[in-house]
Nucleic acid binder design. Structure first.
Lengths: 380, 380
DNA sequence: TTTCACAGTGAAAGCGGTTTCATAAACTGT
DNA sequence: ACAGTTTATGAAACCGCTTTCACTGTGAAA
């Protein structure tokens, strides 16, 4: 019933059809001012009959703001990002806001400037930035422009944001391995040299180092490897590490995605997990539970959900939903980590190292950690 | 340099700053008409200095179309959907179009009507519908409204679309199992009763049945189970199937996500894969290779990519990129399927069935399949 | 009654661009 | 040197909606 000329029905057509003025139609639609009940009915009938839908651009233009939330993220296929986005979408679904997605694709490289540009060009009602750095200069710009921003997975002194303590998380993961008796622990993470990137991996590495220090173990440089994010690249890193004359007996990967790469490398190298090699990841994406990967769980979907609720609040459209808690980091032990005591990596080393002697080393290391002796880390 | 009153810079300000008229600025920006070189320089300088960005809503309103591509999809966390979306994003990134994402969340339930509404309400320049049914009535509406649509993973008589032959795919998967000697083959798929849904799972089941028929095996009703899509639900289905007095020796899951559920069920039931149970999935999402899942690979990212290229073409913004081929379905054999000959499912059956006898059965079944005897399927 | 406040409505002015149209200036060709 | 183009530019209309403002009635307060 709406093909009156194949062109979109306008408010003017509704108005003339209903025998009222344009503003009246507008008022009926937006409930922005009282309208006589009879009039309202007439107008609603016309709207229905003509199949009218307000033009969002016209509306946005005259209101001075769009009904759009801009989401900026580094890479939509990254499971952690997808999950966060999903949480956000869930909240925004019941709001009047549409979702604009900008995938920067190049996690960092591009730096920060473009984010500012993107926002200014889109004039969204609000912005959510997921797992991406943004600087104070930008924030200032956004504030000036009156565009509320919520950060996800990125600490900020001034903007609302959920983020985890990656250092603590890295420490938690590494400590788990240490507790299992591991001493030669590798780290696989993202390249850190790429400009001011998402510092998650770097911070987890910091936590890794802290944990080692805490146990008076030293981080061997050859045990710490980074590459551009990805399963394939991580696999390569792990392969190199396993090929070392003295390979690690455990690997902490800065993300599950990278842990999967380590898993693959181990499989290809014929190294049994967890018997000969323990692997722990970070994030607890869905595939992690499928693979039985031990990992550190961080709130993913919830972070997006919370961001959505917060943003709606800033936009003056509070939801009924309570802001859910932001859960703590949690160690999820599955099948890819095991005590070193059960490890007999002969096949790897080509050297017969008795398990018992290893255990001894461990305990001595742990002992010296508690006794406040010289703080010089011991090279194992 | 652009905080002249905290309000967005308008074209009028640029014009007055540059000492020209508004249309001239517009022409400089859009290259829509020749502008004297000197003038252009002046204007560009003003734009730069004031930090001007055209207001997309104003532009859209006056041009009568937005620079927005609307993507409608069933569930963004579904890996296959994410991958398709990713391909699309990759293409659209280098276009002037922004990406509006609408996640319907409820794969089907809602039916078709809303898609029409969503499109009409958003007035996008173009629409991409991923893995979602849409009917001809809608298409007619869109055509009337002049909004080009491209379908992904959904056959259509009139709209451009990439889609695979799910029946053939299901047949391919099942035939693989049959070739391995399996006779008791289960199917796990999506619930089909939910209105006019995405028929992928149903079609794959059809292919499954066709393959069975082709081998003169009959589909046992208790071997065909469906539930709402998901790993958890599939796991439950698989568990039930494995608890059958005579459980299947192989399972074809209509998607990888569901195959993972089957894998989990097998693990929990202490059933070894592939020794005691072969599992094949469909899609070849990333996790599939991680898990070593045998599956049928369908083009995922490419489908999104092609959709993007096609849409840009329809929008009069052809890319330089060639339309990549749409690859054939491909059987990817990994570690979750094995010949029945090597299967000794005593632990499962509680009955000692000799492998040799099983093999005999298989070959006889295959034989009778080739001989054009009575077509009555044999119950094994 | 007169006065007010207010509900109900329409005319008109934007919002920030694009686009037609007209005009003036600078080149053509003869 | 003059009509005929072509090039560069601005005035004004328009896109579809919101919002201010002014103008009617009408019932309540005085």
């Amino acid at each position: 019933m709406e093909d009156l000329g194949r062109h979109p029905v306008t408010m003017a057509q509704v108005a003339s059809d209903a025998g009222v003025s344009i503003p009246t139609v507008s008022r009926v639609i937006n409930r922005s001012a009282p309208v006589a009940d009879a009039t309202r009915q007439t107008v609603l009938r016309s709207i229905e009959r003509l199949g009218y839908h307000p033009n969002p651009m016209a509306r946005g233009l005259s209101r001075g703001r769009s009904d759009t939330v801009l989401v900026i993220l580094p890479h939509i296929t990254e499971p952690s990002v997808t999950l966060r986005l999903s949480g956000l979408i869930g909240v925004l679904r019941s709001s009047p806001y549409e979702l604009h997605v900008v995938d920067l694709e190049r996690p960092v490289a591009q730096g920060l400037r473009p984010i500012g540009e993107i926002v200014m060009q889109n004039r969204p009602a609000g912005v959510v930035i997921i797992s991406l750095p943004s600087d104070d200069e930008d924030h200032q710009r956004f504030r000036d422009a009156g565009v509320p921003i919520v950060l996800v997975d990125s600490p900020s002194s001034e903007l609302p944001s959920d983020f985890i303590d990656d250092v603590a998380g890295g420490e938690m993961a590494t400590r788990h391995l240490i507790t299992l008796g591991h001493i030669r622990i590798g780290f696989i993470g993202d390249r850190e040299d790429i400009a001011i990137g998402v510092p998650a991996s770097a911070n987890r590495r910091r936590g890794y180092e802290r944990a080692l220090e805490g146990a008076h173990l030293s981080a061997r440089p050859e045990y710490v490897r980074t590459a551009p994010h990805g399963t394939k690249t991580a696999e390569k890193l792990a392969r190199q590490m396993l090929a070392l004359p003295e390979p690690p007996t455990a690997i902490f990967a800065a993300s599950d995605v990278q842990a999967f790469g380590a898993l693959a490398a181990a499989r290809n190298a014929g190294v049994r997990v967890p018997q000969e090699l323990s692997i722990i990841g970070f994030d607890d994406v869905q595939a992690a539970s499928l693979m039985g990967l031990t990992t550190v769980r961080q709130p993913l979907e919830v972070s997006g959900c919370r961001a959505g609720i917060r943003l709606l609040e800033l936009l003056g459209h509070p939801t009924d939903d309570e802001l859910p808690d932001f859960p703590q980091l949690e160690l999820v032990v599955r099948d890819t980590t095991a005590p070193l005591a059960f490890t007999a990596p002969k096949s790897l080393l080509g050297v017969s190292t008795e398990a018992s002697s290893l255990v001894t080393e461990v305990s001595s290391a742990l002992t010296s950690a508690s006794g406040r002796g010289q703080q010089v880390p011991r090279r194992i």
